[in-house]
Amino acid sequence: MSYAELLKDLKARKFAPLYLLQGEESYYIDLVSDYMEKHILSDAEKGFNQTVFYGKDTDMLQIVSAAKRYPMMSDHQLILVKEAQTIKKWDELIAYAENPLRSTLLVFCHKYGALDKRLKVSKAIIKHGVVLESKKLYDDKVPAWVNDYLSDRGYRTDPKTCALISEYLGNNLEKIANELDKLLLNYPPGTPIGMKEVAGNIGISKDFNVFELTAALGKRDAFKANRIINYFAANPKDHPHVVVMGALAGYFTKILIYHSLKDRSRQHVASALKVNPFFVGEYQQAASNYPPPKVWEIISLLRSYDMRLKGVNNTGNTGQEELMKELVFRVLN
């Protein structure tokens, strides 16, 4: 079951006796468990009928014993088991999972991984309960997630801003949501959230960032590219070479893929490069400026400089700032 489907059922008070919230992405696990903790029972019911266990401080037999109790002055009791990934002896749940008490909502929050579906206990939970698989979002899907997050809260944005947020904050949805929530405190719903707003609140420069660098390189705008790389060199903590090199490698790899495409229609290119159609024109221009042999040369340069930045084959012990400036010069020439 997806997060949206599960939340819809919970809001409609369609309950199952067992829930297994599991996966690498903790964001959705926390959202569901927080909703259940706040909304399943009334404040008056919670005192006798809501229990929270932590996996490292309990065992399965204690959890099962609590689950077998009947609610007091309520239709349901809620048992939340947080940090369930630390629980041992899951086989002790099998008998209960095969015949769970309908008045109990037993919820396991299993972060950073999943139970083996081949286990008997997993099969019992799947048969009699609900399983949420909370998977990590692929990097290329994060900009769309950012756009949806802002849209759901009544804000407008643009593809470039979403892509920039994704590039700098990664694919940790909890971290992104926290940063966006802090940003939105400063603006009423309906406000367009663009590069200016992000720069002022998330700490990403509007003019000096990896997207502006790749755009300048794609246009072969040496003046702008050098201004940006000099800014990066002066602010290395804000622009670590690992992030910059990753962005450059991704950018020129996409240009190489573009050269291999026979169908260069806007939608096909966007799909092949896994980018928003908004960016297709930029890659078309970059591909015209960098023929395939030059792109292969740049990718080779990126590999070489990546090793040197990590201290391998860096004869003369050239500093990281100078290496990045040197790399940009060789890309452009």
Rank of each mutant, 00 (worst) to 15 (best):
T214L: 12
N171W: 04
D207S: 14
N201K: 08
P188F: 02
L169I: 04
A222W: 03
N172T: 06
R220V: 03
M195R: 11
S205V: 00
K196P: 00
K175Q: 12
G200H: 06
A177W: 03
G194W: 07
N171F: 06
Y168R: 09
N178E: 11
L217A: 12
Y187P: 10
T214I: 15
A222F: 05
A222D: 06
S205C: 01
A216H: 02
K206H: 11
I165H: 05
G200W: 02
L185D: 06
Y187R: 08
L169C: 15
I202D: 06
M195N: 14
I176H: 05
R220S: 11
I193L: 09
F211T: 00
G194S: 03
N172V: 02
P188R: 01
A177Y: 09
M195K: 13
I202F: 03
A222K: 15
D221W: 07
A216Q: 01
K175G: 05
F211I: 04
Y187C: 09
N171E: 08
K219E: 13
I193A: 04
N209F: 11
N201A: 11
E197N: 07
A177L: 05
Y187I: 09
S166Q: 08
N209D: 14
L185I: 12
G170P: 05
G170Q: 02
K219N: 14
F208N: 10
